[in-house]
């Protein structure tokens, strides 16, 4: 099948990669404290918090997109606060689809990290405590360095999942070239206009990128696992 690389293609690809990179990076920062709290928490609120984090896994993306669209609009108190007080008009902007992506990919970061924390022997934390180390020092020097595969999995999955996002971005961002039009939406748009070579360019790129990312992830985690045994 034909394959057509237009200037639009490069612009859309750049925007898609920017969105996925920002999402994965910010989720890593947000996900570490959240996963730590979920892994070590015991309170009655823990199942509730876990359910909230896991919701994007089961909800149709359009549901998330719909409510975020409402929340960002001036019809709600939150929206008015964002627009009037913070000057943040999020609907149909890059910042808006970034917030949507953060919500949508949250479980893909938090769940591997939570499992990573829970798989570390409890005695590692306790040994650090009996050596006089604070929680923060223990987290940075002992826990995180020993769960690199989980950190990598979470980051890569959040990145790849954001690449494949469609419903949330379409609801919040629409289809504005150079601003909110990401590759997955461009495929739909080109196909609707019967421009199959252009659609194919996006589709083939996403397929190749996703495949290469997953191969790299499995290669690295396997190498890491075998190195641990040495």
């Amino acid at each position: 099948m034909a394959f057509d690389l237009t200037p639009d293609y490069w612009e859309t690809l750049r925007l898609t990669l920017a969105l996925a990179t920002c999402t994965a990076g910010l989720l890593l920062l947000l996900g570490i404290p959240l996963a730590y709290a979920l892994a070590h928490g015991r309170g009655p609120l823990k199942p509730l918090l876990e359910a909230v984090v896991g919701l994007p896994l089961v909800l149709p993306p359009t549901v998330i997109g719909f409510y975020l669209l409402l929340a960002f609009s001036d019809g709600t108190a939150l929206g008015r606060f964002l627009i009037n007080t913070l000057g943040l008009s999020l609907n149909f902007t890059f910042a808006g689809i970034l917030v949507g992506s953060l919500v949508y990919s949250l479980p893909f970061m938090v769940q591997p990290l939570q499992a990573g924390f829970q798989n570390l022997p409890r005695s590692l934390t306790e040994a650090a405590y009996t050596l006089g180390k604070s929680r923060r020092t223990t987290l940075w020097r002992v826990l995180l360095p020993n769960m690199k595969p989980a950190l990598l999995s979470g980051t890569v999955l959040a990145f790849a999942h954001t690449l494949g996002e469609f419903g949330v971005v379409l609801m919040i961002g629409g289809n504005l070239p150079g601003r909110t039009r990401v590759a997955s939406i461009a495929i739909y748009d080109e196909q609707q206009s019967l421009r199959y070579p252009q659609a194919n360019a996006y589709a083939l790129t996403l397929l190749a990128v996703a495949f290469v990312i997953l191969v790299a992830l499995f290669y690295v985690t396997k190498r890491d696992a075998s190195r641990r045994l040495l």
Binding site: P121, S123, L124, E126, A127, A128, Y129, T130, L131, G132, K133, S134, R141, V142, P145, N146, R228
Partner: peptide, 30 residues
């Protein structure tokens, strides 16, 4: 007094050495 502030040494049954650090780094960290 939290465990961090009790001046004691604890040797765990499973040793609980930090896998990401060398022998020297384990001691230096402590």
């Amino acid at each position: 007094l939290p465990p961090q502030r009790r001046p004691l040494g604890f040797v765990f049954q499973d040793y609980a050495l930090f896998p990401n650090m060398t022998v020297r780094e384990n001691l230096a960290f402590a």
